[in-house]
Design a binder for these strands. Structure first.
Lengths: 225, 225
DNA sequence: TTGTGCCTCCCCCAAATGGGGGAGACGCGG
DNA sequence: CCGCGTCTCCCCCATTTGGGGGAGGCACAA
C-alpha cells in the first residue's frame, strides 16, 4: 500500500526537492504538486492524498487556511504536515487548531521528513522538537511564556496562592473558608490581597488569571458544582 | 562537549542494552546506571547528568516520582526521557507534569533513541507520535470528553453564549453591556439565564465552565485586564 | 391566529463582593 | 530588642451580583 502524497509550496524548486525525496521512497508516491492554497484544495479534492506537505506562506490562500478548509470539507483520513522556514511561533497554534498532524522546519533532514510522513500516515503526529517543548509547557503549565504570569504569581504568599486556587475552583468565600479552615473574614482579606496584587478586579478575573497562568488547568476539576 | 547520561531501569539487561547503544556514540557517555528510583535520585545528584533515561515501573520509587523529585530539587539543566514498554496512556500526563522532556516506547529504534537524547539535550522535546497526537488533540480542544459539556452548552441561546464568552473574558455586566451594545439590565437577564441553565452559582463558576468546556481556551486572551 | 421562544428592558431586594481602614499573634532576621 | 512580613480576624460601606417577578416586540411555526 503506497502512500499518496501532495506537496504544496509556492517555490517550484523547494517543491520539487521535497517531491523527489519522497518519490524516491518505494512506498511513497507524490500524486500532485501545488503552488497556491487554492490549487492545493483543488488537488486534494481530486487526488485524495494520504499526506499533504503544506507550506504556510503562499499567494492567494495561505497554508493554514487551506489546511483548515481541506480538513473540514474533505475526507478526514488526510493528514497534513505544515512546513515552515522560520522559527515556529505564532503559526503553530493556528496550524494545530486547523487540524495539522505535523509541524516541521524545512531544514529537516530528508530521512526525518520521510519518517514524519510515515508517522502521520500511521495516525501519529510529528512536531518540531521546539514546538513539542512548547506544547508540553502549555500543557504542564510549567514552561515560560508564562514568565510574566509567574512573576505576578510569586508576588502572592503561599496562603494567597491557595486562595487563588480555590477561587479557580469556583468556590465562594464561605466555601473557601471551610476548605481552608479559617474564618470568612480572613478569606475576604486574602481575596482582596490576591486581587490587588495581581491587579484584578473581581474573582471572575482571578479565575481567568488562574487558567491563563497555568495555576488551574482544564480537566483537573469536574464542573458539576 | 560530550553528553553525560544516566540510565535508569530495574531490569539489568534492558539497562545495559540502552547504555551500550548510547555509549557507542562518540559524543555520549553513560556516567551511571540505576535500578531503582531512589538510586536514580542518588546518582543524579552525584553525577549531574545532562540526560536521564527513566523507566516508569520500578521498585521502591517509580520513575515518575523520581523524575519529579530530581527536577524539583536538582539542577534544572537536566532533561528526562521517560521510557515505557506499554501503551502510553495514564502515565503520559503525569510524566509531562513531572517535567519530562521526552516520552518514548522502549521499542524505539536505536538511532531514534540517540536522536531523542540529542534533541532533549538541545532543549527540545521528543514524544512518541501517539502521545504527540493526543497532546495536540487536547490542545486543539477537538478531543471529546467535552461531550457532556457540549450538551449543557447548547442549552444556551446564541446570545447567552456570547454573554458566557464575555464572562470568560472577566468582563463585568456593565462591560458586557457595552461590548454587546445592549442595556445593563439585559445583560443581567442573560447572565441569570446562563447561570440557571448551566446550573452554576456565580460568574466565577461560569468562567470555570467556559474553560473546562472549551468555550474559552488558555492563550486566547491577555490577562492585562 | 395563537402560541412559543428569544431578545430586550424594567422593578424590587437580599446576598455576596470588594475596598478602606485597624488590630493581635507569630516567627524571623537585623 | 524591634521591625517586617504573614496570617488571622474585625468594622463600615458602596457596589455588584443574583433571584424573583413582569412586560413589550419580533419572528417563526403550528
Amino acid at each position: 500500500m503506497t502512500l499518496r502524497i501532495l506537496v504544496v509550496d509556492d517555490q517550484a524548486l523547494v517543491r520539487r526537492g521535497f517531491a523527489m525525496v519522497l518519490d524516491n521512497e518505494p512506498d511513497m508516491h507524490v500524486v500532485a504538486e501545488s503552488g497556491t492554497g487554492v490549487e492545493a484544495i483543488e488537488a486534494a479534492r481530486e487526488h485524495r492524498p494520504d499526506v499533504i506537505l503544506m507550506d504556510i506562506r503562499m499567494p492567494e490562500l495561505d497554508g493554514l487556511q487551506a489546511t483548515a478548509q481541506i480538513l473540514e470539507t474533505q475526507s478526514e483520513s488526510t493528514r497534513v504536515i505544515i512546513l515552515t522556514t522560520f522559527d515556529p511561533d505564532e503559526y503553530v497554534y493556528q496550524a494545530l487548531r486547523a487540524g495539522a498532524s505535523g509541524f516541521v522546519l524545512k531544514d529537516i533532514p530528508p530521512e526525518s521528513l520521510v519518517a514524519a510522513v510515515r508517522t502521520v500516515a500511521d495516525g501519529g503526529a510529528m512536531l518540531d522538537p521546539t514546538v513539542t517543548r512548547r506544547l508540553i509547557g502549555r500543557f504542564a503549565g510549567t514552561l515560560s511564556a508564562d514568565q510574566a504570569y509567574a512573576e505576578r504569581l510569586d508576588r502572592l504568599t503561599e496562603r494567597e496562592t491557595e486562595v487563588l486556587r480555590a477561587l479557580a475552583d469556583g468556590k465562594s468565600n464561605r466555601e473557601i473558608a471551610e476548605t481552608l479552615c479559617i474564618g470568612a473574614a480572613t478569606v475576604k482579606t486574602h481575596v482582596s490581597n490576591v486581587l490587588s496584587k495581581l491587579d484584578l478586579r473581581d474573582r471572575a478575573q482571578a479565575v481567568v488569571f488562574a487558567y491563563e497562568c497555568g495555576l488551574a488547568r482544564v480537566g483537573e476539576r469536574d464542573v458539576g458544582f
